[in-house]
Design a protein around this nucleic acid. Structure first.
Lengths: 146, 146
DNA sequence: TATTGTTATACTCTATAACTATA
DNA sequence: TATAGTTATAGAGTATAACAATA
């Protein structure tokens, strides 16, 4: 029998749950003046070290002009520094400041709070199953496009 | 040791993966003239039967004015009908037409294609684990607010 | 007076394209 | 001439508030 509704698909459920989770996360991030995209930028910098804005645009999958905006706002919060690349003076390398690392740690704490809130309904073995699947999916899909 | 990045949290991974999945799903839905929100409305109608637009707004968690827009567009596709509630003539009941059911079935097929594409990297037991967790989470969070 | 659906308006987010400075 | 970053502009999406019809 053909399934006549998308309700039971992983696509539909992951999409909707992901949206709800980011909504909840965004609400908590407001308390430290960040949005989810800011956290994505900070996370990329922590992961890859100082990075040119153009490269960051590919990593976070947003237009280069948006990276300018996020960088401006994060610089305003003293979370990142722009440093001219000595070798190629067109490039601005973004790097995390100590305040930025601190902010990222706070963002991580808030994310774990949302984890607890949303995953609280799961039994331990379900949490394990979810984590295992997410690990594999992240390794496959959360990569940096070239 | 405190985890200094949100990268490993379920919140971060579910949010980003959910966004990527809906992006891929949206691209496929274009081929049948729908967006994800349209599918959400159609799914709700299939699940709950003819529904007033105000109630639909709560179910799909969007502003009532947006339901008007989606209903207009879906009516244009002959996917839904507006019928005045005889008992309360202020209410417009939205109901699925045969064409709407057909469209929803197509949307379900496309969702399963995205499932296959994204979950293809998972081993069978990981798929099982993910499905079990999603089922529980959907039961908890994908409910209709009162 | 309250509620349903609708319309009008405004705001947020983001993409595209033009501009500048370096290469 | 090509590329990195920036700025300007425009479009999509959505929320808020005002309005009309019905209760």
């Amino acid at each position: 029998m053909t399934q006549e509704s998308p309700l039971g698909t992983a696509t539909f459920q992951l999409g909707i749950l992901g949206g709800m989770i980011f909504e909840a996360y965004g609400a908590r991030l407001e308390t430290i003046g960040l949005k989810v995209k800011h956290v994505a930028v900070l996370t990329a910098l922590a992961e890859f070290g100082p990075t040119a804005q153009q490269d960051l645009a590919r990593t976070v999958r947003v237009a280069p002009s948006l990276v300018v905006l996020y960088a401006d706002q994060l610089e305003h919060l003293d979370a990142v520094q722009r440093v001219r690349d000595a070798g190629d003076r067109r490039r601005q390398l973004l790097s995390l400041t100590p305040a930025g690392k601190h902010l990222l740690a706070k963002a991580a704490t808030l994310a774990r709070e949302v984890d607890a809130e949303f995953l609280g309904a799961l039994r331990p073995e379900e949490v394990q199953g979810l984590d295992a699947a997410l690990r594999t999916l992240s390794a496959k899909h959360l990569t940096v496009p070239r």
